[in-house]
């Protein structure tokens, strides 16, 4: 398959996932559109060197996360934002708001707000988990061991359950 064919397959199969990924890395709509286009351009250019050593899915997610990570590193330099690890996120105070059952739109906003605070590696893990990838695939994309990925996923589940359950109780 050539560069153009690979790109078209990637866009058809993972287009929505890539848009969600861009959304998790950039809150500003205009910058998000730019980031999304940068990801597509990076993907298309990268396919020139795709050698099949890893699956197409792994390649696509690596390129997308790496492009988005470079984007937030540049943004951070400009805005001096601080990012937190999963451990630090666990200890951050929760803001009273509705739980998951209350309003899906609101849940999504809260979820995005949580993700956008995370450091790149933890952000990559949580996004891969939300996209339905297993620990082995997450390890292949991010470079952490599958065991470490499984531990992080377990922690993510607990954080999400706690944050949203507590949010629900606050909102009651």
């Amino acid at each position: 398959m050539g560069q153009d064919d690979l790109y078209q397959e990637a866009a058809a199969t993972y287009g929505s996932a890539l848009e969600r990924l861009a959304r998790a890395y950039e809150a500003d709509p205009d910058k998000r559109r730019d980031l999304s286009q940068d990801i597509q351009l990076a993907l298309w250019r990268s396919f020139e060197g795709f050698d099949g050593r890893c699956s197409l899915r792994t390649w696509i997610y690596r390129v997308a996360h790496n492009t988005a990570t470079s984007h937030i590193i540049r943004q951070r330099r400009a805005k001096a934002q601080t990012m937190v690890s999963l451990e630090e996120l666990e200890n951050l105070p929760d803001h009273p708001s509705g739980g998951l059952g209350a309003d899906q739109r609101h849940s999504l906003d809260r979820l995005l707000a949580l993700i956008q605070q995370l450091k790149p590696l933890d952000r990559q893990v949580i996004l891969s988990y939300l996209e339905g990838l297993d620990a082995a695939s997450i390890g292949e994309i991010t470079g952490i061991s599958p065991g470490n990925a499984a531990t992080k996923i377990h922690r993510i589940k607990n954080i999400l359950a706690r944050k949203f359950h507590e949010g629900g109780r606050h909102g009651e």
């Binding site: 153009d4 790109y7 078209q8 866009a11 287009g15 929505s16 848009e19 969600r20 959304r23 559109r33 999304s36 286009q37 597509q40 351009l41 298309w44 998951l100 899906q104 849940s107 999504l108 979820l111 988990y129 939300l130 996209e131 339905g132 993510i156 589940k157 999400l160 359950a161 949203f164 359950h165």
Partner: peptide, 24 residues
Amino acid sequence: LPDDLKNVWQNQTVEANQMSLDEL
């Protein structure tokens, strides 16, 4: 909750922003 959140995440509405090969 986490599974429900996965659904919320995967079913969110995203704007189509795909570039054509010429645009690329």
